[in-house]
């Protein structure tokens, strides 16, 4: 009850509005732009995390190297570091006069206060989801399978593509979806680096906060309902994927 009841107020609140009024608020130009930015950047970040998350998980499971345990522990940093702290640190780094931003500026790449900055923040918070989903599956995958493939004449690349990848695909998709789910709701780490220009770099969760601070509760609720529905959908996909993954790996 404790969890369900507060979230139910969103439904009750929207019931006070006529469906057409709700629709108009939820699909205003600024709201539509914020969805596009939120979902676009979340998708980009989740894709980057899928590639590098698999790489990191692979290295952690298969390659013993000095400092591996430290690297393994560091992967959880985004879970432990408060989002606001990550936000100001990334903004400082990627600002035009920042340590990384100053190096990208001559190349014509502007990260802070742009769509790219939002993606960088979302990569930060989403990475552990992919690593921690793929890692246990890789650990249960015996290296002997690849050895068998190699004995049969497969190159290491082919063995990876034909033996390892099919086994981790369900976990990889789950990790991608978890990272995406976390990204669409993310607020703290994004708002500093985004610059928050309406229609350009304003994410949907921020627009909810802005509407609340203007006491436009109906506007805030309309956008929140859209985001909530998106979260439910993603949650549904995650549950399906995890069931598939469990069947595939027999865990």
């Amino acid at each position: 009850m404790k969890v369900r009841y507060p979230l139910a107020t969103l439904v009750i609140k929207t019931a006070e509005l006529s469906p057409s009024a709700l629709w108009a608020l939820a699909t205003s130009r600024r709201a539509m732009a914020s969805y596009e930015i939120t979902f676009g950047a979340s998708l980009a970040a989740a894709l980057v995390n899928t590639v590098f998350g698999l790489l990191v998980a692979w290295v952690l499971v298969r390659y013993p190297f000095p400092g591996r345990r430290l690297v393994d522990a560091i992967v959880d940093l985004p879970f432990a570091l408060p989002t606001a702290v990550a936000g100001i640190a990334l903004t400082t780094l990627y600002a035009p006069n920042g340590w990384i931003g100053a190096r990208l500026e001559p190349l014509g790449i502007k990260v802070s206060y742009s769509w790219l900055g939002i993606t960088v923040a979302l990569i930060f918070i989403g990475l552990p989801f992919v690593v921690r989903t793929v890692q246990p599956v890789l650990e249960t995958l015996p290296p002997e399978l690849e050895e068998a493939a190699a004995t049969l004449g497969a190159s290491p690349g082919a063995a990876f593509r034909r033996v390892v990848l099919p086994a981790v695909i369900p976990a990889l998709l789950t990790g991608f979806t978890l990272a995406f789910a976390r990204a669409i709701g993310e607020y703290g780490s994004v708002i500093f680096i985004a610059g928050n220009l309406p229609n350009v770099s304003e994410i949907a969760p921020l627009l909810i906060v802005i509407r609340l601070e203007e006491f436009k509760y109906a506007d805030a609720t309309a956008i929140a309902v859209v985001m909530l529905l998106a979260s439910f959908l993603v949650l549904l996909v995650i549950n399906r994927l995890q069931r598939w993954s469990e069947r595939r790996t027999g865990r």
Binding site: V3, P6, L7, G185, V209, A224, M227, L228, I238
Partner: peptide, 28 residues
């Protein structure tokens, strides 16, 4: 079990919003 997981998948902003809608000056 699904309800317990819910706060993980909902934006923290929305988690805050529901309490404003419940207990805020214009709230429930």
């Amino acid at each position: 079990i699904t309800l317990i997981d819910l706060p993980f998948s909902v934006s923290p902003v929305i988690s805050g919003l529901v309490f404003v809608l419940l207990f805020g000056a214009q709230g429930f």
